[in-house]
Design a protein around this nucleic acid. Structure first.
Ligand code: MN
Ligand code: MN
Ligand code: MN
Ligand code: MN
Lengths: 220, 220
DNA sequence: AATATTTTTTAGTCGAGGCTAAAAATTTAT
DNA sequence: ATAAATTTTTAGCCTCGACTAAAAAATATT
């Protein structure tokens, strides 16, 4: 069955919300991310339920079916592969690609996306460290930790970000924080939980708790 | 002003029709190419006229304004650049790319299309030999001739096709006819105007007038 | 347990971009 | 110059995906 841009966006957003909770997703939560009103969401949820892509009972919230999740994962796959393309091949910065990928993720061609995957050498993660589903819809397992949860004097590597807004990414860039940077927390200030962190063995810089929370790292 | 997919498709089609005539374009001609009904076209022409992209007076046919032509050329540029990408970088055949490019041509990012242009080494023509407008909207001058207009025993090179339907392209491929092929017309049959043509110095094969008409060549 | 607040759904509307059927204008044929 | 045929427009309707305002249900507070 064919999926419209609007339907794909809803499914993708329900998927994203489902990643961080086991509970059913509320109408309002969907409305916030789709940038629409709750009434519009209710309409769409009924439609998605009719097509068998979500389980939805009024007032009970919504949850993806297997088929719905499959579609969502294919949109996520396309979004992230196109982001890799834009950064690795087109020379964009990581804070410039999200909006363009929001458009490209709706291009419908199984053949194209698989050739693109190959062209990019089957990347496991996108420019923000987010995992890319393979063509069967399987996500690679990544066990990342928030920089804010790290103890002092442990070496680690920046593997991703938990938020990909342009302003946040630009801030990281200004601090010389990019994927692969070697980090070590030198000091944690109990007052505001800000941290002092050394980046690639340079002089430590200060980072707010808010920023540290959105930086994903792996140990070692 | 923002342009919808539908508007871009209409402008592109009016542009295409304008290439082969100096007269105003008829509602029916547009309807045929957009695969819609004349009544729908009338509606859209009124809308395009309101936005200043076409000159349109009822019953008089339609013609692009400068601004309308600029938009049409930018869509054509995107379409053809993406086709080059699909063939040269993704490994598609020339008969497989049109449908995908129909989608990609609507991706809105000036920055992306200019980076793509550079990535592809500023190609002058697409995989079907059609000229690609540069970022100022200037088309390279190509003076191609139809193979059906050629005299016997003149050497020439296949530079493009005047029709890019998949079946036609597949036929050419089966005949070993691709861009750059060296051709020489050995015989013209006055009965049905079919021709006998040698391809890359091999034994001559028969080609119908209909096919020859849609093959573009340059002399020498 | 009753009431106040918040969330969600319903009802009705809108614009975009299609459609069909009928009317009007234009073009072609007699 | 009429009449016939063709083309184009108008009128009215439809679906999709939004919206607002009002009603209903669920949840929180006293
Ligand atoms: Mn993104
Ligand atoms: Mn990303
Ligand atoms: Mn094409
Ligand atoms: Mn082409």
């Amino acid at each position: 069955m064919a999926t419209s841009f609007a339907e794909e966006n809803y499914l993708k957003i329900i998927y994203r919300l489902s990643e961080s909770t086991l509970e059913d997703i509320s109408t309002n939560a969907v409305a916030e991310l789709t940038q629409t009103k709750a009434a519009s969401v209710t309409d769409m949820l009924r439609k998605l339920a009719e097509k068998g892509w979500v389980n939805y009972q009024k007032y009970q919230g919504v949850r993806l079916t297997e088929e719905g999740e499959k579609i969502a994962l294919s949109v996520v796959r396309k979004h992230r592969l196109w982001e890799v393309f834009l950064v690795d091949k087109m020379g964009f910065n990581w804070d410039e690609v999200h909006e363009i990928a929001e458009q490209l993720e709706h291009i419908e061609s199984e053949a194209l996306i698989n050739k693109l995957d190959e062209f990019l050498d089957f990347p496991k993660t996108d420019p923000h460290g987010d995992p890319i589903p393979n063509k069967e819809g399987i996500l690679p397992e990544l066990s990342y930790v928030h920089l804010s949860d790290l103890k002092e004097n442990k070496a680690c590597v920046l593997m991703g970000v938990a938020k990909d807004s342009a302003v946040f990414l630009q801030l990281l860039t200004r601090l010389n924080l990019s994927l692969g940077a070697k980090l070590m927390v030198k000091e944690i200030n109990s007052f505001d939980r800000s941290i002092s962190v050394s980046i690639n063995d340079s002089e430590p810089v200060f980072i707010s708790h808010e920023v540290a929370k959105n930086i994903l790292i792996k140990l070692g």
